[in-house]
Amino acid sequence: MTTFSQAVAPSARPLTKLFTGAALTAGLLFASLAPAFASPKEEAINYVQQLADETISILSKDGQTPSEREAAFRELFTKNLDIPRVAGFALGQYARLPSPEEKKEYIQLIEEFIVKVYANRLSAYTDQTFHVNGAVEKGSKGKEVIVDSKIEFASGREPVPVDWWLLRQDEGFKVFDVKVLGIWMAQEQRDTFISVIRNNGGKFEPLLKHLRAQIGQAEKEIQQKLTGEAQPQPGETPSEEQDAATASE
């Protein structure tokens, strides 16, 4: 461009101006279109970053009751996680086993299970920062991207590597699976659920029973935690202080 305009400069100034103008217009045009041309990897990284930001903003919001926090996580999870796909994947070859009613309850239970367990696990994080390291496409159609990230802790605790397996849907990316410390969560559920069904004579109902029990248990623990926080038992207070002291060392 420079060499060209230098070459034509003496005789054709108006022409150069025209070119510059055209280039500028084109530049503006492309700049405004840029998001549409972002590679699937960049798009996926932005998506994960935004998801992490939303999670951290839920975690760091003050004056929230635990049920408000759970509701916020439920909204976040149901919006961003492809729960029916996880549910189907977790049944493997048994995916055609449940009746329509069983299927409906099963998907609801999975959602409940994920919300309860992960809202609780995430609540333990307080001093973390989130870094995206990069992304890899799975397949060549830009439909699936694995984003590699890391959670770091101010306390000096070992960083936790987290991979995000994203799948593009009509309305944008959704999360299919998350790998924490080398473990894919949906794969773990699949191995466990298939085992429960197989060890119960290939019947579906026992899995539902287990899931209901598990959710009830999680609920009970959250309740216990709440009452424990509200009224600390006299015997427990010193040990908690001790824990805090050891942790801050």
């Binding site: 367990v117 473990i183 191995d191 466990t192 085992s195 429960v196 899931l211 999680a218 623990e221």
Partner: peptide, 12 residues
């Protein structure tokens, strides 16, 4: 606590 089959979870 969060497993429906502890043995199968550990295997996985």
């Amino acid at each position: 606590r969060t497993s429906v089959d502890y043995y199968a979870t550990i295997r996985s």
